[in-house]
Design a protein around this nucleic acid. Structure first.
Lengths: 345, 345
DNA sequence: CTGAAAGCGCTAACAG
DNA sequence: CTGTTAGCGCTTTCAG
């Protein structure tokens, strides 16, 4: 390609018959410059499609407006980023970053290699990191925070936490879902979710509190540990559903995807939802309302979450420390539950 | 924060008692260096968590391994990146880029301002661009290609196209879906999709060809223009379904989301799918198989698409020109269609 | 108001 | 094998 190498400030300077310093001033809106030369330079640059080289600029100014957004993935399944809730989070973050004039470097990391993302920061690639998904990485995250890497994590707040986290109030969500199911007449609620994960654990705590407060005995053996991902979950669920009698009349899943899988399977076995088993999910992903039956669920405030995470990160970058946040959840009652008491939405 | 400013190569050099040149060599695996000093430097760097500043390195080397991935959005709805198919594409691209040691800068652009993404390239921010979603931007894309911006677009191949596109064989997909519905006994198939969009238009062409080849008369007034996005589509669809008699016994939607919305609405009106209307979607997004009824659809090969787009872009960056690609589609028959002939999957 | 010159953190000739 | 030196493209004192 005879493509003349990319245009530089020096080229513009020569063409305009001024020095690069002047061009720089014109382009950056300095006021130490003649209005007439400024417009001349601006027009020249525009007509030539010239844009300042960001890398060089950053190097010189010691600045950096790109944020690393990281989604850890399971090294075994190597699964393509598929959790819809996380994906929608990426979308929201993309908007929030754009609004604040930041850019987003999206990275997937093998979860066995979490700490390596710190390099994005130490190498000056990004000004800070947003990690979507806490999983079991509490320690890795802590060690990065210890190394002063600006960092905010989507997840639950844990004891002894050095990093900053933003998450929905998982305990509250679990409580809301369970109270709703109990009020709707359920007495044996199956809890679906991996309680070794901080978020799921908190949701389970809410489940327990609901039983306690309503003075309904906590059923035995009604928690089933499932991965977040749908098809893996299906296999395990499927095995559980073979046991008859079912032994439950309500189901609280710690993600909508799990709820879908469960409903799907139950339908296949001829069980009616919500007739025989009422179901509540978690997340309120977009398709929840298009599912049949429309899925009752706990909504996590994604939009809010995105801006909260970004603000928190920016604060840290400025060196102002950080405060973990937990955002309110909201019960959305649709068709898969709420036979008796609640209003439909 | 007393946080000593970030570590630099000069610091490592001083600490190791060598010059920065030596450190640079050690870190970049040059062989012009004593094995013993190398390991000493490497260990020092590791223990101090030092990483080379990528910005400075790029500037010096004139290299750039980041790729811009762009998803245009509708300026009116300002909708968060929500199309699940595009989102999964982002996931796949993230993996493909990582595999090839590239980084991904994810951008959302107002669709009224498409051309501005060229700045990402001219400013040296990225080495090339992947645009997910062609929409109505044919001209903008062409003009960017004319300006020699390395660019690959997910979409249909169009006449007079200067940019490089990768897409599924939309005509084939439309054909497969329609043949299947016709073979399953449908005679009046409603086509759902905005035929002013290149991709939907091609799918419609396939729909027409299927009728022609099977010598079945093309029904009148059975195309309905819908936006890709679900809730907007619902409103329009809903109006159409009020007209009775329905006048169709099959439905081919140009996205799974549209199919979901349609099925949902039809169910509400007491229509049975596939009993009264058989439905085929397009995309085969993850939830398609969990929907009730499980959705028959045309699968687009996302994984393949991701690597194809990246390879094509890399080729362009190397200055080797580009060739547009169209990928094969696959009919997936599930429960929402295929009463008679096809095997279930 | 404008230009000359220094330097952001790094790599690559070029000499030892 | 290693150090010295020059500069990648830009911004910003410091002098005019």
């Amino acid at each position: 390609m005879g493509l003349a190498d990319k245009l530089q400030m020096a080229d513009i300077a020569r063409l305009a018959g001024v020095s690069t310093a002047t061009v720089s001033r014109a382009l950056s809106g300095s006021k130490l410059i003649n209005e007439e030369t400024r417009t001349r330079i601006l027009e020249l640059a525009r007509s030539l499609n010239y844009t300042v080289n960001v890398g060089a600029k950053n190097l010189r100014m010691g600045e950096n407006r790109t944020i690393g957004v990281v989604i850890p993935y399971d090294s075994k399944s190597k699964q393509a980023l598929s959790e819809p809730f996380f994906l929608s989070m990426v979308g929201v973050l993309a908007s929030a970053l754009t609004d604040q004039n930041y850019e987003m470097l999206l990275s997937r990391v093998d979860e066995d290699d979490m700490v390596s993302i710190a390099d994005l920061y130490t190498s000056g690639r990004v000004a800070g990191l947003i990690v979507i998904g806490q999983w079991h990485h509490h320690d890795d995250l802590n060690s990065m925070a210890l190394r002063k890497v600006p960092l905010v994590v989507w997840g639950a707040k844990m004891p002894q936490q050095l990093y900053c986290s933003v998450g929905s109030d998982n305990e509250l969500g679990g409580y809301q879902a369970t109270v709703h199911l109990l009020n709707s007449g359920c007495r044996k609620i199956l809890f679906l979710g991996d309680v070794t994960l901080p978020e799921a654990e908190a949701r389970y705590q809410g489940y327990v509190r609901a039983h306690t407060e309503l003075k309904i005995p906590l059923p035995e053996g009604l928690t089933l540990s499932l991965p977040f991902e749908a098809s893996a979950a299906r296999a395990i669920l499927s095995k559980r559903l073979e046991k008859l009698p079912l032994g439950f009349d309500g189901l609280f899943a710690s993600s909508d995807l799990q709820a879908f899988a469960a409903i799907s399977l139950m339908n296949e076995l001829g069980l009616d939802v919500p007739g025989q088993v009422q179901v509540v999910g978690y997340d309120d992903i977009e398709i929840a309302k298009h599912f049949r039956p429309r899925l009752s669920t706990i909504r996590q405030p994604v939009e809010l979450a995105g801006t909260a995470m970004l603000n928190s990160l920016i604060q840290q970058i400025k060196g102002e420390g950080c405060t973990s946040i937990s955002l309110p959840t909201q019960l959305i009652v649709r068709e898969s539950s709420g036979m008796n008491l609640e209003a439909k939405s």
